[in-house]
Simulated scan of single mutants.
Amino acid sequence: MVDTSGLIWPIQRRDDFFRIVAYIILATALIFVIDVITPLGVMIWILYLIPLFLTVYLSWKYAPLVMTGVFILIMAVSLFMSPRDISIEYALIDRVFFALILIVTSIFIENYVSNVECLAMNEERYRHLIEWLPEGIIVYQQGRIAYINPAGIRLLGSDRKDDLIGRDIIDMIDPGFRKLFLERVAQAALGARMDIDTVQLIRQDGSEMSIGMFLGTIFWDNGSAVQIVMRNA
């Protein structure tokens, strides 16, 4: 089964979605009421950016554009309801100007959400692929095993992923090979593609075996990590 715990999409549960929608509706209604009872104009409209940015946390990439349309409609309604200390022509120009700001902002947000969605999909495909590879794959991040595929679990002599996630693989490497391993990891973290012909591994079941390693940097869970490919030497 594919482990998607590292996917970075902001909304994970239906309850989260409805809570964010409630925040957006509440904030929009409050801003509209303030706009209707005060003649502050742009000083109030700028608050619409708050619910607009909240749409980032929804799982629908068109939410920013839809909400921008709603805000523009509300601003048009408030043109006839809120008190004015300027002529209607200037009030209309102000609203058109700020509507353009909202449109540009929503486009940037929509592009960001699309990029996040694409990244999450690519990471899911990658995880699905490496789950079935015969080589052992480890994602080594901040000195800990952040991910290991089933072949890697078997190679390290374990039956459960939970026994390995969070551990430092250096503890399972023979002391005579640790310095070489750390040097290769440091070089791989800088972007180099490294390999180690032979590493003596102390497996979870106490047995020892020689493996080869190929190391390279990858992006994982919003940060840089080193991918380690292991195979029998």
Rank of each mutant, 00 (worst) to 15 (best):
residue 161 K to A: 12
residue 45 W to C: 01
residue 126 Y to T: 04
residue 112 Y to N: 06
residue 214 F to Y: 12
residue 151 A to M: 06
residue 177 F to T: 06
residue 102 L to M: 12
residue 86 I to W: 12
residue 204 Q to Y: 09
residue 180 L to Q: 15
residue 137 I to W: 01
residue 56 V to R: 05
residue 85 D to C: 02
residue 158 S to V: 01
residue 151 A to K: 07
residue 132 W to T: 12
residue 167 R to A: 03
residue 99 A to P: 06
residue 88 I to A: 11
residue 99 A to M: 11
residue 227 Q to T: 02
residue 27 A to E: 12
residue 233 A to K: 00
residue 107 I to E: 09
residue 71 F to W: 07
residue 200 Q to Y: 03
residue 104 V to Q: 00
residue 215 L to C: 12
residue 204 Q to K: 11
residue 210 S to F: 13
residue 67 M to A: 02
residue 150 P to D: 04
residue 188 A to K: 08
residue 184 R to M: 09
residue 75 M to L: 13
residue 218 I to W: 07
residue 125 R to E: 04
residue 229 V to L: 04
residue 164 L to H: 02
residue 57 Y to P: 03
residue 78 S to H: 06
residue 125 R to V: 04
residue 164 L to K: 00
residue 64 P to E: 02
residue 194 M to F: 00
residue 204 Q to T: 06
residue 144 R to A: 14
residue 194 M to E: 14
residue 192 A to Q: 07
residue 17 F to R: 15
residue 197 D to E: 09
residue 131 E to T: 05
residue 96 V to I: 15
residue 198 T to M: 01
residue 159 D to A: 03
residue 106 S to R: 00
residue 28 T to F: 13
residue 139 V to A: 04
residue 70 V to T: 10
residue 130 I to C: 02
residue 43 M to R: 13
residue 50 I to N: 01
residue 179 K to E: 15
residue 95 R to P: 07
residue 132 W to F: 15
residue 58 L to T: 05
residue 54 L to P: 02
residue 156 L to G: 00
residue 89 E to K: 07
residue 23 Y to A: 14
residue 162 D to E: 15
residue 28 T to G: 10
residue 74 I to K: 09
residue 157 G to I: 02
residue 225 A to T: 04
